[in-house]
Computed example of a mutant assay.
Amino acid sequence: MSKRRIGVFTGSRAEYGLLVPVLRAIEAAPELELVLIAGGTHVANEADGFTIAAQVPVEREDARAGSTSRAIGTGILAITDALEDLALDIFVVYGDRFEAFAAMIAATQMSIPTAHIEGGDITQGGTLDDVVRHAMTKLAHIHLTTNAEAAMRVRLLGEEPWRIHNVGFPTIDLIRAGDYADAETVTDDLGLDPEQPVIVFTQHPITTSPAAAKDQIAASLSALDQARSKLGAQIVLTYPNGDLGSEEIITALKTWASSRPDVVLRQSLGRRLYHGALNFCGHVTNGICVGNSSSGVKETMAFDCPAVDIGPRQTGRLRGMNVAHVPHEAGAIFAALHDGLTDASYRAKIIAAENPYGKGDTGSIVARLLSELDLIAPGLLAKQTILPPD
C-alpha cells in the first residue's frame, strides 16, 4: 500500500519551531510520507534534518503598505506551481501569517484536502491575525486546534463538528521531551551568569499601527534600562518579525545594544537555544520573558517562566497565570518584570499551576488523524456551514 503524501508548509521561523513535533511524527509514521514546502530560508538554518521538497518565494519586497498584499499574490502563484508537481494527498498549514494565508488559498482552490493548525485562537490587539486566521478556518477542511476554547470558536464559525480536533499545542511535545539547549550551552552561547536575573525580550510591530512601533520600543527599552540598573538584570534581545514597523524596532535595538556591551542582541536564537533560554529563566535563575510575542503567552508556562505581555498584540489569547499584561508604558513594564523577577511566592504559584495548552502528545495525535482521514468521503471537500444550536 502506498504511503500518503503529507505536504506541510512552513513560511517563517516563527511557526517552523512550532511545527517540528508534527514534522517528526509524520516522518516517523510508516504509512505517511513527509513533503516539506518552505516559504523562506529559515529551515536550512536549523539542524533538524528535514528534507525540503520545494522552496517557494513568499517574501515582502519592501516596507510599503502594499508589499504584504503583493507577497500573498506572488506566493499563491509560486505555491500553486509547487503543488502541481508534488501530488499531495493532504496539505497542512500552520497559523495566521501572510505566507500561510497564501499557502491555504493555493491548496484549497486546487481541491487538496487541507488541515489548519491553530485555528480558533484570538488576538484582538490591533493585528490582522484574527481576520486572516478566521478566513483560513473557513477555507480549511480539517481543523487542528491547540485548546478547547479555540475548538469552540471554530464550531461557532459554522464548521461541522467532525472536522474539528483539539490536538494541543505542538511545542509542548518538544518541551516535555527536553528537546532544548541545556543550561551550560545557554550560559556559554549567551554569556549569562546563572547567579543574576535574566530577561529574554522580543517585541514585534502591530500590523494595524506600524507608525507606533518606534514609541512602543522606546518605552520597553526604558524599562529594560531600569531592570539593568536596579536589578542587575542580564538582557537578551532578539529581532522582531518582518511586519511593517520592524525596521524601526531593529534600528532602536541596534542603537541601544551598541552602547551597552553587556546586552546580547541576536537576529534569532533558533528554537533550541530560545527554549533553553526560557528554561534557564524558569529553572536555573530568576528570569522572565518580556515582549509581545505569542511564545511569551503560549510557551513560557511549560518552563515555569514568568512572562510580561506588553500592549494589545496578544489581547484575547489564552494564557496561563504566569503571564502579566501591561500597556506600552515604561513604568508599568518595569513594575511587572520587577515582580516576576523578585516575587518568590508568585514564582511558586506558577510552578504549581496547570498549563492550558496540553500535555505534550500533539505530534502523534496529528499523525494518527492524517493517517485515518477518509480522503474519499463525499463531504470532505464539499464544506457546509452548520451553526450550533442556540
Results as ranks from 00 to 15, higher is better:
M1E: 12
M1F: 12
S2E: 12
F9W: 01
S12N: 15
E15P: 08
L18H: 06
V20R: 02
V22E: 04
E27R: 06
A28E: 04
P30E: 01
G39T: 04
V43A: 11
A44W: 06
E46L: 15
D48I: 03
D48A: 08
F50E: 03
T51W: 04
A53E: 13
A54I: 01
V56N: 05
P57K: 11
V58N: 02
R64M: 08
A65L: 12
A65I: 13
S67W: 08
S67E: 07
S67Y: 06
I72S: 02
G73H: 14
G73R: 13
I76Q: 08
L83K: 09
L83P: 01
D85I: 03
F91C: 05
V92E: 06
V93H: 04
F98A: 11
A100Q: 02
T108E: 13
S111T: 12
A115L: 05
E118Q: 14
D121E: 13
G126L: 13
V131P: 00
T137N: 06
T137W: 05
A140Q: 00
A140W: 05
H141M: 06
I142A: 02
T146C: 09
L157K: 07
W162Q: 09
N166V: 07
N166E: 12
P170C: 01
D173V: 00
A177I: 02
A177E: 12
G178Q: 05
T187I: 15
D189Y: 11
L192M: 07
E195G: 15
P197Y: 04
H204D: 05
T207H: 10
T208G: 10
A211C: 03
Q216R: 14
I217V: 15
A218H: 10
A219I: 01
L224T: 13
A233Y: 02
L237F: 10
L237M: 14
T238K: 02
P240A: 08
P240W: 01
D243V: 11
G245R: 07
E248L: 09
T251H: 12
T255Q: 14
T255D: 14
W256G: 01
S258Y: 05
R260K: 15
S268Y: 03
H275T: 09
L278Y: 12
C281L: 08
T285I: 10
N286M: 01
V290I: 13
S293K: 07
S295Y: 11
F303S: 08
P306G: 08
D309C: 15
I310N: 01
P312E: 10
R313C: 03
T315N: 07
G316E: 10
R317D: 06
L318N: 04
M321N: 12
V323K: 00
V326K: 04
V326P: 01
H328Y: 14
E329R: 15
H338Q: 15
H338F: 11
R347T: 08
I351M: 11
I351H: 09
A353R: 07
N355P: 09
K359S: 14
S364G: 05
R368F: 01
L369W: 11
L373E: 14
L375C: 05
I376G: 02
G379T: 12
L381V: 08
T385A: 06
I386A: 13
I386R: 14
P389N: 02
P389G: 00
